[in-house]
Design a protein around this nucleic acid. Sequence first.
DNA 1: GTCTATAAGTCGATAGAC
DNA 2: GTCTATCGACTTATAGAC
Lengths: 189, 189
Amino acid sequence: MADRGSYAKGVVRREEILTAALDVFSREGYRGTSLRDIAKQVGVSLPGLMHYFDSKEHLLTAILQKRDQVDGDAHPADGDFLDGLLAIMRHNRDVPGLVQLYITLAAAAEDPSHPAHSFFIERFAFVRLALAAVVRDRQAAGTARADLDPEHVARVLIAVADGIQIQWALDRTVDMAGDIERLWDAISR
Amino acid sequence: MADRGSYAKGVVRREEILTAALDVFSREGYRGTSLRDIAKQVGVSLPGLMHYFDSKEHLLTAILQKRDQVDGDAHPADGDFLDGLLAIMRHNRDVPGLVQLYITLAAAAEDPSHPAHSFFIERFAFVRLALAAVVRDRQAAGTARADLDPEHVARVLIAVADGIQIQWALDRTVDMAGDIERLWDAISR
DNA sequence: GTCTATAAGTCGATAGAC
DNA sequence: GTCTATCGACTTATAGAC
């Protein structure tokens, strides 16, 4: 019974730390920042930080999960899932640190023992399903060519979104959302 | 005069080390391998390795440059540049370590002080130019729609190539070259 | 020019006091 | 639950033999 209180407190504290860490990475960027720096900026000691996260990799993975959750809430689907993805890509211009963190962790997640491994696999599966549904809906509505393969288009849209972030990170004049929109126009007409 | 010999020797030794390192990464993969491990597998001491490369980041960048050079020689353009890119993507299935190294370094290269920063900027500029030329050539030959924007298509093809490697790293059943070919078919017809 | 030997400084991670 | 203190491993650097 009484344990409930402390357990809830722990969860709340963890969420506070996660929100603060997400804020730090959004503003200041990720350049191989050490756990000591993160702890300092978040306002806890290093062991205090590691009390809530098993390792640095676990913390970074949790930050990306938190980002997805926040983005999902902040950009509700006024249109369909593809419109939502474009809105998030436009928002990404304001958080270069999260873009770099995402690409870096996606590469590291190849290792099956990496904490982000299953996160990325499930994330790609979910987004692929949602985008394939968009293609089918738009085909039914007559706003997309009928001979498009929804699964293939979905996979390619994800690849473009990820790849264009790499190019944008190196050249901030790249129009990430615009390039994706133009690709959709080219394949759907 | 006599300096020539020793200078050339140094360059040769550096190339030997680079070739050995490229071979190690191709076979064994890159999972944050330490410089000591690389030195041991290449057959030199740690300071012996650092005599030829200023830092770990410089070494990894040099490995990617060497990879591009080797790939360029191994896959001469029997077709045009896009055909060559597809051949390299098919070859990439055999070198997962290099794929992971490429993505990881591309993300880290966002930092202007990173040794790979200018390498990636110049690499993207070169490939974009070459792919845009392919689009124009195929348009002239009548095998691509005339209303395609060559620069935009080039940028998108690079993004798909990079992004699809991330998905393949997490799921080896992904057909990297096939997905790019199908995208080209969809936008060029 | 090339190597062996060694050390400085920092990292992620942990042990144990309170 | 949060701290001080500390560990081993890492990148990086230097001194000096050949």
